[in-house]
């Protein structure tokens, strides 16, 4: 008891607060926990690991009074790796290239119909539920991957920061409900499931499709890329034709 305490708790706390990898570790820890929960619950939709991790981390940040910017600076390595993972989708895509070629017509039709449904349903429902015009425009590109959606929202007079949040929420929601919803509609094939996930729910949906099968993941990645292009090219036209 008379010995000096070798543990300098003050210094330890400081190291914890300033080490950039703290938030990498917290993010990974929360995700692993959430993934465990998802597996144990046999993929119960409401326990989607992205949603559960986000909620856990927001609670931790609120409790510790840590601003989002501090957290993001610490955890941004994962954010940057997202681009690399998107490039990596080329591998399952290549493995399925024969099938993509054989199914070109059905894929193109589903892309156009699904992509337009994404934009038009947001416009119609936004009007129905009385969203203000800038908020409404922020919702229209919500099914495409974040960088495209933010650029489009900005260009069309929306709120890019809101669009980023809406895009993530759409992705999580799509990933949560796609499999049971499509099964209810009689759609059980891995190609149709994956492609619909990629069109409606971009990267988060693609990540969910990879859990179904590498093939579903490949078609989701393809759909995500194609819908990004389609939405970029047609958004201005759709908005100009829409009776505001």
């Amino acid at each position: 008891m008379s010995l000096p305490n070798p543990l300098d708790s003050q210094a330890m706390l400081l190291a914890l607060q300033t080490a950039p990898f703290l938030w990498l570790a917290v993010t990974a820890g929360c995700y692993l926990l959430a993934e465990r929960l998802y597996t144990v619950s046999r993929h119960f939709p409401l326990l989607h690991p992205v949603l559960v991790s986000i909620v856990l981390i927001i609670v931790i940040l609120r409790l510790g009074q840590v601003p989002y910017q501090t957290y993001f600076n610490g955890a941004q390595l994962y954010h940057w790796l997202l681009g690399t993972a998107t490039v990596a989708l080329a591998v399952p895509l290549f493995d399925n290239l024969q099938r993509v070629r054989a199914l070109l017509l059905p894929l193109v039709v589903a892309l156009i119909v699904g992509g337009l449904a994404g934009m038009l349903s947001a416009l119609a429902l936004g009007k129905l539920f009385g969203l203000t015009p800038d908020v409404l425009i922020s919702f229209v590109p919500k099914s495409v991957t974040t960088p495209i959606a933010m650029a489009l929202s900005q260009h069309a007079g929306g709120l890019p920061a809101l669009t980023a949040n809406v895009v993530i929420l759409t992705g999580i929601l799509g990933a949560m409900i796609a499999v049971p919803l499509l099964a209810l509609a009689g759609v059980r094939g891995e190609i149709a499931q994956g492609f619909a996930l990629g069109i409606a729910a971009h990267g988060v949906g693609t990540a969910r499709a990879i859990q179904i099968s590498p093939t579903a993941g490949a078609f989701a990645g393809l759909a995500m890329g194609l819908n990004g292009v389609l939405t970029s090219l047609t958004l201005a036209l759709v908005l100009s034709l829409w009776p505001a």
Partner: peptide
């Protein structure tokens, strides 16, 4: 990388706060 693609959306997603 693809095995953990979902994890990579978490930092941006926490921006919901």
């Amino acid at each position: 990388l693809l095995r953990y693609m979902a994890l990579l959306f978490v930092p941006a997603g926490v921006g919901l706060m």
